[in-house]
Design a protein around this nucleic acid. Structure first.
Length: 419
RNA sequence: GGAGAGGUGACAGAGUCCGGUCGAAUGUGCCUCCCUGCUAAGGAGGUGUGGGUUCACGCCCACCGUGGGUUCAAAUCCCACCCUCUCCGCCA
């Protein structure tokens, strides 16, 4: 949720919202409706004050005096009722308009759409295309099975077997350990959540189509562990001294992938169910931008150590999504496609999401909204895919990255699965 | 799934039957001061959140799980929902 005061008084803030696609007209309409809301609010409160004092008098009045006083109170009540309806209308108007305004882009974010990202750096040498893409490779080694998964659940599902499973758990364990070294608190989070959590975490109403709904229970399957992490301190006031609070969450994630027919249909790249290790930071406003750099550094470290070539881009303003003020994508090199594809990302939401969540900081007696950030530590499916392709040998085996070997019993090479 | 009990401030815990003087007794904790070889004990005062308005002091509004309703007036009455606990059943 946008900061209305700041939007009215801070031109840089306002400009940042416009760079993300908000129109000046919408912003002015919002500010006007907010002014209107306050006007009505004052009127309502004055009337309520009057009514309160009249009611108290009735309580003290003698039985003979009461009927007349109650009569007078009744007319006040009618007046108040009408004004309250007006206030409700004004309030709804403000909220509706406010939800349309995205979190302003940070000044360091390039203008433009999806193609206008800024390339920050490219690391590692692009691996030449191997004999097989990850899907063929996985099937031939018997470690990924999408055919049987289709029979089980339909398209965009996969079975993972054998050494790929060992690799999956190695990835989880390794990233968890790495992050715990940076004071991240490990968390396993609920994947079924209530509607309000989806709204407050910023996914509804925009991404409602992408989410599985369990109508019978009024619950939703999360598309990312971020939902569970973002809600941990909902409605709480944290002490400035305990910030930053960093969490690393692990969970399965579920996405309907509506509107992606025909895109990335093979293998693990785009599936309805995948596991993810996710970072989330509750930060003091003063250090939030440092935290974003920490998340980016950690994400880069992970791909460097997995020996996967990647590049880092700063996403352009128009492609940021509602809540992010700035976002880095880490894109891994996919040899079979001869291009970089997104594997992880990290964003600074500043106070945008925390305001709706009601998560605040208490410092020197004053209370302000804190800042939140999130980033992918490891999207298991896509990372497995990148490992398969970049570490594929000419003989059709896969070399396990050295850092993972201690986590999968010293396994060095993945060959065809027995049996 | 069946049967009960309950959700009040940092916590504990009154108030709810019989609506008004209840933003809410009392205790603990916390803060300031006094007393005191030290500590403990003791004494005095203070101690919720959000919002509106004001240069400011202040004044006002809202909040007793959430949302509606009744009433001049609701923590208190009515309805719906959410949550917690206990017992039974079932279960990884």
């Amino acid at each position: 949720m946008i900061d209305l005061r700041k939007l009215a008084n801070d031109t840089d803030y306002r400009d940042g919202a416009i760079r993300k696609g908000a129109s000046a007209g919408d912003i002015d309409a919002l500010l006007a409706s907010e002014a209107r809301r306050r006007e009505v609010l004052t009127a309502v409160e004055n009337l309520r004050a009057e009514q309160n004092s009249v009611s108290k008098e009735i309580g003290r009045a003698t039985p003979e005096d009461r009927p007349a006083k109650i009569e007078a109170a009744n007319t006040l009540k009618a007046k108040l009722g009408a004004l309250e309806d007006e206030l409700q209308t004004a309030q709804t108007a403000v909220t509706d308009l406010a939800l349309q305004i995205p979190n302003p882009a940070h000044e360091s974010v390039p203008d433009g759409g999806e193609e206008d990202f800024r390339l920050e750096r490219e690391v590692g040498e692009r691996t030449p295309a191997g004999p097989k893409d990850h899907a063929e490779l996985g099937e031939s080694l018997g470690i990924v099975d999408t055919e049987r998964a289709v029979r089980m659940s339909g398209s965009r599902f996969a079975y993972i077997f054998g050494d790929a499973v060992r690799l999956q758990f190695a990835l989880i364990q390794w990233t968890m350990n790495k992050l715990m070294g940076h004071d991240f608190v490990p968390a396993v989070v609920p994947v079924l959540v209530r509607e309000d959590m989806m709204v407050d975490a910023g996914f509804f109403p925009t991404d409602r189509d992408q989410v599985y709904e369990l109508e019978k229970d009024g619950l939703f399957l999360v598309g990312t562990s971020e939902v569970g992490l973002a809600g941990i301190h909902r409605g709480e006031r944290l002490d400035a001294a305990e910030l930053p609070k960093r969490y690393v969450g692990y969970s399965s994630c579920f996405r309907r992938e509506a509107g992606t027919y025909g895109k990335d249909t093979a293998g693990l790249f785009r599936v309805h169910q995948f596991d993810k290790v996710e970072m989330f930071v509750y930060s003091h406003p003063d250090t939030a931008w440092d935290e974003l750099e920490l998340l980016r550094t950690l994400e880069e470290e992970i791909f460097t150590e997995l020996e996967i070539p990647y590049r880092v881009i700063t996403v352009a303003s128009g492609d940021l999504g509602n809540a992010a003020a700035k976002k880095y994508d880490i894109e891994a090199w996919i040899p079979s496609q001869q291009q970089y594809r997104e594997v992880t990302s990290c964003s600074n939401y500043t106070d945008y999401s925390a305001r709706r969540m009601g998560t605040r900081v208490k410092e020197d007696g004053a209370t302000t909204v804190l800042h939140t950030l999130n980033g992918t530590a490891c999207a298991i499916g896509r990372t497995l895919l990148a490992i398969f392709e970049n570490h594929q040998q000419s003989d059709g085996t896969i070399v396990v990255p050295e850092v993972l070997r201690p986590y999968c019993g010293g396994l060095e090479v993945i060959g065809p699965r027995e049996a």
